[in-house]
Amino acid sequence: MNSIPLSATELGNLWQAYREKSMLLRVLEYFILKSTEDETKEILRNAYTIESKNEEKIRTIFKNADAVIPNAFNESDVNKNAPQLFDDNYAIMYVRTMGKVLSGLYTLHEGMSYRQDIRDLYMEFTTDMQHIYSKTTEHLLDKGVLPRPPIVPMPKEVDFINDISYTNGLNPFRKKRPLNTVEIGLVYQSLETNLAGMRLMNGFEQVAKESDVKKYFTRGKELAKEIVSMMSNHLLDSDIPAPSTWAGMVTDSTIPPFSDKLMMYNTSLLSNFGLGSNSIGAAFSFRSDLLLNMGSIMAKTYDFAKDGGKILIKYGWLEEPPSASNRA
């Protein structure tokens, strides 16, 4: 047992990580049961084994610190008898997206940790999530359902930006320069993430029980569609075709496999990740129109996430993080 107490940041980040893993395990349980392909089932089972082990590690730390374990998500949040809502390709695409999201969060959490065992824990979490991401990416590429980013000519010499016109994009009377490779990468990742999110919202909208939750997922789907359209246009403006093949389909089932609480939390997690991703996109973009669109996306995503929090509070689904002592 470590004699150094958990710091506030370590406790808060572990609390978040436990809830994320608890949610992901419930989704994986359902996906494994409904999977129809042996290779898909194997990848999902491997991810489940990894995440079960890591969830237990957090539980042990909480127990050793005499800290209450979050309620998070349990058997009541998944209906294993519900028909397949997402096909096998989307199940893998979902796990791939979560691998991308969580590996980024765990790298951030490691940088906020001071105890050696907690730093080591996040390094393990990051490595595990990168392994899951790699396996799911390779599977989708092998099946031909995950397009690769565009290819551009290799540079032959070093160039420098020597004209302010490089940032042009909003003036309709001046020609926009083509996107540079950094911008292409940011646009492409936004496009890919929101296409996956659009299908997730479509499925959640289809099975949600509460009317305001259903409307919220419809709003999320429309927001994702708007972002996909915007990012596709940026590629097309630079004579780069937007990808036409994407992994996964939503079935016509209307029987909910997950509780509204779990689906809302999942949406909240992805919305917050989207806010971070778009802020990075804005920071590394030079063209003014791209900056403006990234800012618009951030504003709309923030409003969407904020309204999602209100729904979580309304139904008593928002578990309160550990806090400082109230000495008032």
Results as ranks from 00 to 15, higher is better:
residue 1 M to L: 04
residue 2 N to H: 11
residue 3 S to Y: 09
residue 3 S to G: 00
residue 6 L to T: 05
residue 6 L to P: 03
residue 12 G to E: 05
residue 12 G to S: 15
residue 14 L to D: 08
residue 17 A to M: 03
residue 20 E to Y: 07
residue 27 V to P: 00
residue 28 L to S: 08
residue 30 Y to V: 03
residue 30 Y to R: 07
residue 32 I to H: 13
residue 36 T to Y: 05
residue 36 T to Q: 15
residue 39 E to R: 06
residue 41 K to G: 06
residue 45 R to F: 06
residue 48 Y to D: 10
residue 49 T to Y: 06
residue 49 T to A: 04
residue 50 I to V: 14
residue 54 N to A: 00
residue 56 E to R: 15
residue 57 K to Y: 03
residue 57 K to C: 01
residue 59 R to E: 08
residue 63 K to V: 14
residue 63 K to Q: 14
residue 67 A to T: 08
residue 72 A to G: 07
residue 74 N to F: 07
residue 74 N to L: 08
residue 77 D to L: 06
residue 77 D to S: 04
residue 81 N to E: 15
residue 81 N to F: 05
residue 84 Q to G: 04
residue 94 Y to L: 13
residue 96 R to P: 10
residue 99 G to T: 05
residue 100 K to L: 15
residue 111 G to C: 07
residue 112 M to A: 08
residue 120 D to G: 09
residue 121 L to R: 07
residue 121 L to F: 15
residue 122 Y to S: 11
residue 123 M to W: 06
residue 123 M to D: 12
residue 124 E to I: 03
residue 127 T to K: 11
residue 129 M to N: 10
residue 129 M to R: 04
residue 130 Q to I: 10
residue 131 H to P: 10
residue 132 I to M: 13
residue 136 T to H: 10
residue 139 H to S: 07
residue 142 D to M: 12
residue 146 L to Y: 13
residue 149 P to V: 04
residue 162 N to V: 13
residue 162 N to Q: 12
residue 165 S to T: 13
residue 165 S to P: 04
residue 166 Y to C: 05
residue 174 R to M: 12
residue 177 R to A: 11
residue 185 G to E: 09
residue 196 A to R: 00
residue 198 M to N: 02
residue 198 M to K: 02
residue 199 R to N: 13
residue 202 N to V: 02
residue 203 G to P: 06
residue 205 E to P: 01
residue 206 Q to K: 10
residue 206 Q to Y: 02
residue 207 V to R: 00
residue 212 D to P: 08
residue 212 D to I: 03
residue 214 K to M: 05
residue 214 K to N: 03
residue 216 Y to E: 01
residue 216 Y to C: 00
residue 216 Y to L: 02
residue 216 Y to I: 00
residue 221 K to I: 01
residue 223 L to G: 07
residue 225 K to D: 13
residue 227 I to T: 09
residue 228 V to L: 00
residue 231 M to I: 06
residue 233 N to C: 04
residue 238 S to C: 06
residue 241 P to V: 01
residue 245 T to F: 09
residue 245 T to L: 11
residue 249 M to I: 05
residue 249 M to K: 15
residue 251 T to G: 12
residue 262 L to G: 01
residue 270 L to F: 00
residue 279 S to Q: 10
residue 279 S to P: 02
residue 280 I to D: 11
residue 281 G to N: 09
residue 282 A to Q: 09
residue 283 A to W: 02
residue 285 S to G: 06
residue 288 S to D: 14
residue 291 L to F: 07
residue 291 L to Q: 12
residue 291 L to N: 11
residue 292 L to N: 13
residue 295 G to S: 14
residue 300 K to E: 01
residue 300 K to W: 00
residue 303 D to I: 01
residue 304 F to R: 02
residue 307 D to V: 00
residue 307 D to A: 01
residue 313 I to K: 14
residue 313 I to D: 15
residue 317 W to D: 06
residue 317 W to M: 12
residue 320 E to S: 14
residue 322 P to Q: 09
residue 323 S to V: 06
residue 327 R to T: 13
